[in-house]
Write a protein that binds this DNA or RNA. Structure first.
Lengths: 69, 69
DNA sequence: ATATAATGTAAAACAAACTTGACAAAACCC
DNA sequence: GGGTTTTGTCAAGTTTGTTTTACATTATAT
């Protein structure tokens, strides 16, 4: 599972700690997800989608899902 | 977190066991998710989305997410 | 160069997701 | 009705996600 959190953060000039605060998780959780140590829970993915006003699929990309673009 | 698994199953005349098999999880997992005992993992949500050819948001709906329709 | 901020990482603990096995209740045929 | 399939549920166990604390490394700014 890939994700665009680092890019989305960079676009807003947010630190991992900032994003963690907005999503009500620990900074280590953000770091672990960005470094692909584990996948977020579905509720957390929804929260991120809401925060960035994007679809979950636009933030997180399943490796099995073949991308048509 | 609500979900439309039961409806999507019904449309295809699948049992919980059928869906479990297609998603490589136990029948109890499908039952628990349908009965809102817990949320699926993000990978499982992606797998369901692929199976039904829908977006995750069209299958699972966060309670916090205000629906605009 | 040194201070500060940001990121990476690790261990221990706990919570949430998922498994297997088993059985009861409900729905569906004949 | 009785048999069969489907659904609901429970307990015990494993795995995955998350927290806290702590410290090391890297980047940024004087």
């Amino acid at each position: 599972m890939k994700n665009r959190l680092k890019i989305l953060r960079a676009e807003r000039d947010w630190t991992q700690a900032d994003l963690a605060m907005y999503l009500d998780v620990s900074r280590q959780t953000i770091n672990a997800i960005e470094k692909n140590k584990y996948d977020p829970s579905l509720p957390l993915a929804f929260k991120a989608a809401r925060l960035f006003a994007l679809n979950i699929e636009d933030i997180f990309q399943d490796d099995e899902t073949i991308n048509k673009n």
